[in-house]
């Protein structure tokens, strides 16, 4: 059959669901081993965070699309959680190999790392369903759930989201070319504009690097 944009999107959706069917809603045994190797075991905080964002995402999705679609939002979030655990495991395996380390206590107890990784996973699911595909399940075409909507849902700074994108792409080989292109567009949008909004952690990094270099002049404020 000729490939139409809707059919292509549906294929992507089916591919994502197929990949995530074998993934679990809970941390795998391998992940639990990493958690147990930590100086401070992060498992409880990870499970509480996933549960907390489940309610937040479901509510925000329903507010954006309509109260009748709350369960659809919950279903998409659950797919995102599966991808989150799958990518986290892959990341830790590659870091263990690269650093010859098994205690990832600092990273796995970093709230921003987990929030960014989870947001990126849910963004992949949302982008896969996309605007056209979302019409196929009846959500209104006027509701723009495309990036950076996800940053508002997770109350996440754009630059913190940016920090996980490349490692996410490295860790998940089954991402489609379209999805990698989407994440790359997110990166560009963040670096070109979103990361320069007031309150961005990027300004702190610039300041710290200047201080480290012994320079005292302040970074330009966005207003300038």
């Amino acid at each position: 059959l000729p490939q139409t944009p809707v059919r292509a999107a549906m294929n992507n959706i089916q591919q994502l669901i197929m990949i995530l069917n074998s993934a679990t809603d809970k941390p795998s045994d391998t992940l639990i081993t990493y958690f147990n190797n930590c100086t401070v075991n992060p498992q409880d905080s990870i499970l509480k965070r996933v549960e907390s964002f489940h309610h937040i995402f479901k509510k925000k999705f329903a507010e954006a699309v309509g109260q009748g679609w709350a369960e659809t939002g919950a279903q998409r979030y659950r797919l995102g959680v599966r991808l989150y655990y799958r990518v986290m495991e892959s990341m830790l395996k590659s870091e263990e190999e690269r650093l010859s380390v098994q205690n990832f206590s600092t990273l796995l107890n970093d709230n921003i790392f987990h929030t960014s990784l989870l947001a990126c996973a849910v963004e992949v699911v949302m982008a896969t369903y996309g605007r056209n595909a979302s019409q196929s399940d009846g959500t209104s075409a006027e509701t723009d759930l495309s990036f950076p909507w996800i940053l508002n849902v997770f109350d996440l700074k754009a630059f913190d989201f940016y920090k996980v994108i490349e490692s996410f792409i490295r860790a998940e080989p089954s991402l489609t070319r379209e999805m990698i292109k989407h994440l790359e567009r997110c990166e560009h949008r963040i670096l070109e504009s979103l990361a320069w909004q007031s309150g961005s952690p990027l300004f702190d990094l610039i300041k710290q690097s200047k201080e480290r270099e012994g320079q005292t002049d302040q970074p330009e404020t966005t207003s300038t």
Binding site: M91, L99, D110, I112, K163, E166, S167, I169, I180, E184
Partner: peptide
């Protein structure tokens, strides 16, 4: 992923990006 421009250096990964080393 061939089209994607990987920017992390050889010795860099998610641990460095979140100041864990």
């Amino acid at each position: 992923a061939q089209d994607y421009h990987f920017g992390l250096e050889e010795g860099e990964g998610i641990s460095e990006l979140f100041d864990c080393n």
